[in-house]
Structures are given as structure tokens and as C-alpha cells.
Amino acid sequence: MRRFGLIGRPLGHSASAAYFTEKFAREGLSDHAYALYELPSIEALPGLLEQHPDLCGLNVTIPYKREVIRYLNAVSPEARAIGAVNCIRRTPDKGLEGFNTDIIGLREALSELLGLAEPEEALILGTGGASQAVQYALAERGIPFALVSRDAAKGNYTYDNLPCEVVGRSRLIVNASPVGTYPNVDEAPRIPYAYITPEHYLLDLVYNPEVTRFLDYGRQRGAHVLNGRTMFVEQAEASWRIWNGEELL
């Protein structure tokens, strides 16, 4: 059995198991399985690996994308530069190798959302592992950005002191926080949505629900919106390529 899975906490919102289970069935891979492993802390990872010696690949989600790095034998240069890992390959000879496939998904999502548009400024909501990949992707495109965090030490602004004019001129706004994820579908990042215009582009990395409250508020203001489904699919397929040895460190 080739076993794969997702580690994180909580995992009730995740579509990863359904996605890969359907993929394995479609491709006739009856000796493959994918499961959700909700870990109480990252310190539980060695025990999980010991319990499942046939685990040969893992995805990593909130809140362990940064914490998991210390357990890895090697990390790809791009994941190292981003500072977060969301994909692990496990082999007998090389142990645990870390990659970041979020960046692959983000490139596709930004291209789909923006088209030929070139926002002069961006605002990233959240400062966790997903946010680090967003920062990397925007830097690649030459788009200056500011960070909004609950912690004043981690961002340029907090949600309590975010100026309205910053929202108004930041024509690309990315929700890289888990706010609004199922089951908390009535929640949205606390920003002044009245300053969103039809010239704004809103990307939510959340894909469950399909239309988050964040995106709905933007849509009501005429903004261009995109949820996290494109990113999810692209990063999942990139993980599959890594697990099958198509990408090397």
C-alpha cells in the first residue's frame, strides 16, 4: 500500500482526502490511500510516521507549515526561501524531504484572477505559512505589498488600525488567513469593505465554502473575486508529481 495524507489542525474543512481518493479511483490505483491526520501538535509527527511505515507522502496545512521544517532531512531551495513547507516526500534513502507547492498554486490563481491587470499595491491578510507563499508570489510579480495581522509585531497593520485609504489603493487583496473557513462561514476578515471598488481584485485562499463572506462582500462592491479552488488543485497535482519522484531536490 502506498499511503498519503494531510497533517494539520483542524482538518474538518479539507477536501484533500476526497480529491485524492477520487483521483486514485479514476486512475485505477487500488493500492493507494489518502487520509487526514489531525495532530494535536507537530511533536506528534514522529509517532505518526512510526505508526504508518508505508506513509510515503504528506501534505501540511495550518498551523504546521513552518513548524514541520525542523523534522525534515532536506528542504527544497524554494521552500527554504519561502520559509514554509506544505508537501513532504518520504523515501527510504533520503528520509523526509520538504517542498512548497502552494507557490505553484498561487502563480496559477493570480494569473487567473488578474489576467493582464497589474495592481500597483497589494494587501495580504494574515502572516502564517500560507501568507509567506503569497509574499513570495507577489515579489516574483513585482507587486509591493503590506501585511495585516492580529499581532502588531508581525504585520504592517493590525485589523484595528488598518487605514481605509490603504484598502482603497490596494487593488489586490489576498486573504491568506483561515478566517471564513467552514464551519465558521459567517466570519470575514475585519477590513473596511466600503472602500472596495470594481477595480479591486480579491483572492481568498479558502475554498470551503465556495463563496466566503470575504469574497461575497467584495462581489457586492463589484470587485473581481476568486476562491482557493484553483490553488488547491494545482498544489495537489504538484504534490502528486513530487511523491512520484518527478521533482528532485
Results as ranks from 00 to 15, higher is better:
Y159A: 01
E199G: 09
Y201S: 15
A153D: 15
T197P: 12
C164R: 12
L202F: 06
T158V: 14
L202R: 08
A188F: 05
S149R: 02
R190L: 13
D160V: 00
P198L: 01
H200D: 06
R171A: 12
P183M: 11
L205Q: 02
R219D: 00
I196R: 08
L205W: 03
D216G: 15
V166D: 05
Y157G: 07
R190V: 14
D204G: 02
E187C: 08
L202K: 06
A188W: 04
I191C: 08
I173G: 04
V185S: 14
R141E: 12
V148K: 09
S149T: 04
G218N: 04
N184D: 15
Y157I: 10
R190D: 15
N175Q: 03
E140C: 05
R219T: 04
T181Y: 01
A146V: 11
A176M: 05
G168W: 00
R213V: 12
E140I: 01
D216C: 07
F145M: 09
I196T: 06
I173P: 12
E140A: 07
Y136G: 01
F214I: 05
E210Y: 11
A146S: 15
V148E: 12
A152H: 13
G180E: 01
A176C: 08
D204S: 05
E187P: 00
I196V: 14
E140S: 01
P189R: 04
A152D: 08
P144D: 14
V206P: 12
F214M: 11
R213I: 02
C164Y: 07
R169C: 09
V185C: 14
G142T: 02
Y193T: 00
P189M: 03
S149Q: 03
L147R: 12
N184I: 00
T197E: 13
A139R: 15
L138M: 05
R141F: 09
E140P: 01
I143S: 04
D204K: 02
P189L: 02
E165A: 10
T212W: 09
Y207W: 12
H200C: 09
A152L: 08
D204T: 06
F214G: 08
Y182V: 13
I191D: 08
D160I: 00
F145V: 01
L215G: 07
G155L: 11
L147A: 08
I143H: 07
L202I: 10
R213W: 00
L147H: 04
P163N: 11
Q220S: 14
L147Q: 06
I196S: 10
S149G: 02
P198I: 00
D160Q: 13
F214N: 07
V179G: 04
G218F: 00
A137R: 05
N175I: 09
A139W: 00
D186F: 08
Y193E: 09
I143P: 05
N156K: 04
V211Q: 14
N208G: 07
E210K: 15
P144L: 11
T181I: 15
V174E: 03
P178W: 11
V166F: 11
S177V: 07
R150Q: 07
A176W: 01
P192L: 13
V167Q: 09
A146M: 13
Y201D: 04
E165Y: 10
D186A: 13
R169I: 05
Y217S: 06
P144S: 12
Q220Y: 01
D160P: 00
R150G: 05
G142A: 07
Y201P: 06
R171D: 11
Y182G: 03
G180N: 06
